[in-house]
Design a protein around this nucleic acid. Structure first.
Lengths: 230, 230
DNA sequence: CTCCGCATACTTGTATACAAGTAATACAAG
DNA sequence: CTTGTATTACTTGTATACAAGTATGCGGAG
């Protein structure tokens, strides 16, 4: 059975983009399980649109390794690939601190305001233990950091590579109990940027991205079928 | 008029992938000029296949910012965007030295052989001033470096971001007269890796990727219509 | 000569029909 | 019961038809 979290289609965006956004969100949020089969026809019927825009969305998701398309056999949600998670971590460890440092030289003021707002909201939801909101805010924080320094394209690829890690975090949303550490680091980073302290910004960000998921092995055991064997 | 460099279609790969590879190569090598319009129908007629796989290839190239698709208006080869070139340089400055360092810890031996072969060929073609071959070998060198350390996905995104810079280099192929510096650095990097000297590998690679195109401003003036105004 | 309006020939977006290949299942033979 | 085979119902890949929007050029009005 196909159970999708549908958002209202925006008439400004094409059917292809709608399908892409909707499916990606469902994959990241694990509404679609790793390994689960998807049928183009079934999607077309469910969404009441033709296969063409669906195919184009699926092709893009396959390109980003969130789907596996086997010709004449089927399309499946990719299993979580720990190698890919490791590689994403490597990329982030290089790029995020450098972006934080660069942000101390040049950063759009409106984006700085956005960062401060983000931290405030973050602290609010930490208190409320609203993990879903925290998850979204965390991603938004980093996106804003990249955008403020004019590195939107860099963010897009970092975000794309991070998809498999995002799913692991989704598995452990409730048990990811270091939200307060995360928000403290976010706050410190914002302060370092507004105070134009590049060494500090870089150092904290480096710590931040090396914050490791404590219980990764336990998760792999618990949700064995979701992971690609290696 | 549409003048494409066609390679023989490989029956193993899908029509979509064939079109993608062929068009990307033609764009990078400037056989297709920046700003030039492309028509799906014209491509379909020329390649004797239907619009569907062509559309899917165009969508991917658009995603990678090598094409600009304006709904109901037309599809155009992207102008060279200097902002994007700058951002690609930023990403490479972070990732390439880190990859070179990591390669000193762990590197597949067959890829090391490939690197040595690459340098030998490189030196041969420097002597022969075969710039087209040098261009290809240069890209291959970096690809092999990433692959040897198990960072194929990272290479893919670096390569994708680098497309606009590649076109600038293509504009100045003949006048890019520092090929001997480039090959010397390549050789030094290979030696640092096989000698497991991470500091040296990282340092040389950092120099290598900051090697700047001397005459960029002159190129922008000479080929003004190829560049996105900023 | 200038400018406005409409017809027309494009463009890409979407829908649908057909082709080709895979997997599973029912069924018969041993 | 086991095994091999053929049928059938899927899958994705490709081709084509239609829809909707845009630019261009021609012709007439002012």
């Amino acid at each position: 059975m196909l159970d999708l979290e549908l958002s209202k289609p925006d008439p400004r965006q094409s059917a292809r983009d709608y399908v892409y956004d909707m499916l990606r969100d469902n994959i990241i949020r694990l509404k679609l399980k790793p390994g689960q089969p998807l049928s183009e026809n079934e999607l077309a019927a469910k969404l009441r649109i033709s296969r063409t825009p669906i195919r184009e969305a699926l092709a893009r998701l396959s390109q980003e390794q969130l789907l596996e398309v086997l010709p004449q056999r089927g399309t499946y949600v990719s299993l979580i690939d720990l190698d890919q998670v490791e590689e994403a971590r490597f990329v982030r460890e290089q790029l995020e601190p450098a972006v934080a440092r660069a942000a101390c030289e040049r950063f759009a003021s409106d984006h700085l305001v956005q960062l401060e707002m983000n931290v405030l909201l973050f602290e609010k939801f930490v208190g409320e233990k609203n993990y879903a909101k925290l998850f979204g805010l965390d991603i938004q924080f980093h996106e804003t950091l990249f955008a403020g320094g004019g590195k939107e394209r860099t963010w897009k690829i970092v975000n794309a590579m991070n998809a498999h890690l995002s799913r692991i975090r989704m598995l452990s949303l409730a048990s990811e109990f270091n939200w307060s550490t995360i928000v403290a680091q976010h706050r410190a980073i914002v302060e370092a940027i507004s105070g134009r302290n590049p060494d500090e910004a870089e150092r904290i960000m480096k710590e931040h991205v090396t914050l490791i998921l404590q219980d990764q092995e336990a998760l792999v055991r618990k949700f064995e079928g979701f992971f690609k064997p290696r």
